[in-house]
Design a protein around this nucleic acid. Structure first.
Length: 327
DNA sequence: AATCACTACAACCGCCATTAA
DNA sequence: TTTAATGGCGGTTGTAGTGAT
């Protein structure tokens, strides 16, 4: 947090060209809130000017998105949300905006902070514990992390997919009792997220990586929770679609998926096609925005109205504790 | 009561992609 | 086609709050 830059005494702040930084005052919040509710989202630099704020557009955007937006859910993350975050992070890596898009009322910043300050730490604790008790039953975590996060997830019938950083990925976890199948998120997705029917044939990493059109040189980057060389469109390609995408969009996606042919030479997807698909979706959202007036209302309508956490959680698989990531 | 350590989280920074001129 | 402006994202910083000593 940063201290708000004080309004200079005796000066009309509106004539002061210097943009303010730091914490937002309640007055500034009011101005921005009133402006947004009245006018909806537009060009952010105009928002800053027209709302009478000595802030850059970027700062206004951030304040609105992370704090003032009416559809924000405040307060602690529920165990379900926590589990979903871990699950999504295992699939998406640090793509906070994509994770946030799948959690109603939560912002990318909020999730990122939550991850960095809470989840990561607990995973680290678990990592230390499991490696030091590697001969014990991995399904019975004993420490603090286990009693909190892990138990809450077990109550949900959920265990997180976890990756390990490259320095510790291979040995200790593989030695864990009952662990005979290193699960990769990609592998899971290939198998419809059903890891109960583990396919040992797919353990041949180069083979199955090639099957989905990724060059055999690609590898999972435990450090970033992403696939080297597979950064392009990962979310759109391999992650269950946003709830907000309707049937028509799904159809468009299917059509575009067919168009996303891999390049025979590189094994990579054609990014232009992916980009076009994204543009289609965005264009549809924009059209809705025009019809409905304020963008935030549309955002609300697109996301909040159709969000059902329980529904989302159905997609979270139940699988064995495997490989986890500490960043 | 003072100090220190730690946590949570708001906000900034820099980079990249997209769009408009 | 080039360039500037803008928006969006992830990483990082810095401070208020809180608990321990």
């Amino acid at each position: 947090m940063r201290k708000p830059e004080p309004f200079s005494a005796g000066k009309d702040n509106h004539s002061n060209n210097k943009l303010r930084k730091g914490l937002w005052s309640p007055e500034e919040d009011d101005k921005l809130m009133n402006y947004m509710l009245k006018n909806g989202q537009g060009c952010w630099s105009d928002v800053a000017k027209n709302a009478g704020l000595q802030r850059c557009g970027k700062s206004c955007r951030l304040r609105w998105i992370n704090y003032l937006r009416p559809d924000l859910k405040r307060g602690a993350f529920s165990p379900q949300e926590e589990a979903l975050i871990i699950h999504l992070h295992s699939l998406l890596g640090n793509r906070w905006s994509q994770i946030a898009a799948r959690l109603p009322g939560r912002t990318d910043n909020e999730i990122k902070n939550f991850w960095n300050s809470s989840v990561k730490k607990r995973l680290k604790t678990l990592s230390a514990t499991t490696s030091s008790t590697s001969t014990s039953d991995s399904s019975s975590p004993k420490d603090g992390m286990g009693s909190g996060l892990m138990i809450s997830m077990q109550e949900q019938g959920i265990m997180p997919i976890m990756y390990m950083d490259s320095s510790s990925a291979s040995s200790s976890m593989q030695n864990m009792a009952g662990l005979n199948h290193m699960v990769d998120p990609l592998h899971m997705l290939q198998h419809g997220l059903n890891m109960s029917s583990a396919c040992t044939g797919c353990l041949n990493t180069p083979q199955y990586m090639t099957q989905i059109g990724v060059g055999t040189g690609d590898s999972f980057d435990g450090e970033n929770g992403a696939f080297g060389g597979l950064d392009i469109g990962l979310g759109e390609l391999f992650v269950p679609p946003l709830e907000s995408v309707n049937v028509e969009d799904q159809k468009a996606k299917t059509e575009n998926t067919n168009k996303w042919s891999t390049n025979n030479n590189t094994g990579l997807y054609n990014t232009n096609n992916i980009s076009n698909y994204n543009n289609n979706i965005n264009a549809r959202a924009e059209n809705l925005a025009r019809v409905n007036g304020n963008c935030w209302e549309v955002d609300q309508e697109l996301r909040m109205g159709e969000w059902d956490l329980e529904e989302l959680m159905k997609d979270v698989p139940s699988f064995s504790l495997v490989d986890f990531q500490i960043q």
